[in-house]
Design a protein around this nucleic acid. Structure first.
Length: 118
DNA sequence: GTAGTTTGACCAAGA
DNA sequence: ATCTTGGTCAAACTA
């Protein structure tokens, strides 16, 4: 079909190497951006991913990982090696795609029980 | 025929 | 008690 340049569509999201299944998309009015919902299709993997981007600035991509991959990376996928949890032991990861700029952290704990790395 | 994707509607929580 | 938003599920369509 001729791409209707009018309808907003998810831009080319960066490949994480994992298999994500899109299960929903919504426009968040509070931030005025679109948000797509993805879930890892890997068995035993309950990791979820959210991608939000500005309808007018597809360059501002923000990928938010929720949950953790119970399986190793896309290269190993070892069911018996759940050591990956050691790297993803936290439940929320936020990455900014594009310019690598964070919109504006409300000022959470910079090192309080967050991803302090250790 | 399968897989993946899309849209709409429903539900729940919070203010 | 009401309204709005966010999140998820199901069904349908296309490639």
């Amino acid at each position: 079909m001729a791409d209707q340049g009018n309808i907003i569509r998810a831009p080319d999201f960066p490949e994480d190497g994992h298999e994500w299944k899109k299960y929903g998309q919504k426009l968040i009015r509070t931030i005025g951006k679109h948000r797509s919902y993805f879930i890892c299709q890997r068995a035993n993997c309950k990791a979820k991913k959210r991608v939000e981007w500005s309808p007018l600035e597809p360059d501002d991509l923000k990928v938010v990982y929720v949950g953790t991959h119970t399986h190793e990376g896309p290269d190993q996928a070892g069911p018996g090696s759940i050591s990956s949890v050691d790297a993803n032991r936290y439940n929320l990861l936020t990455q900014v795609l594009g310019d690598g700029q964070w919109q504006s952290p409300p000022d959470h704990d910079p090192t309080g029980g967050q991803i302090t790395g250790q």
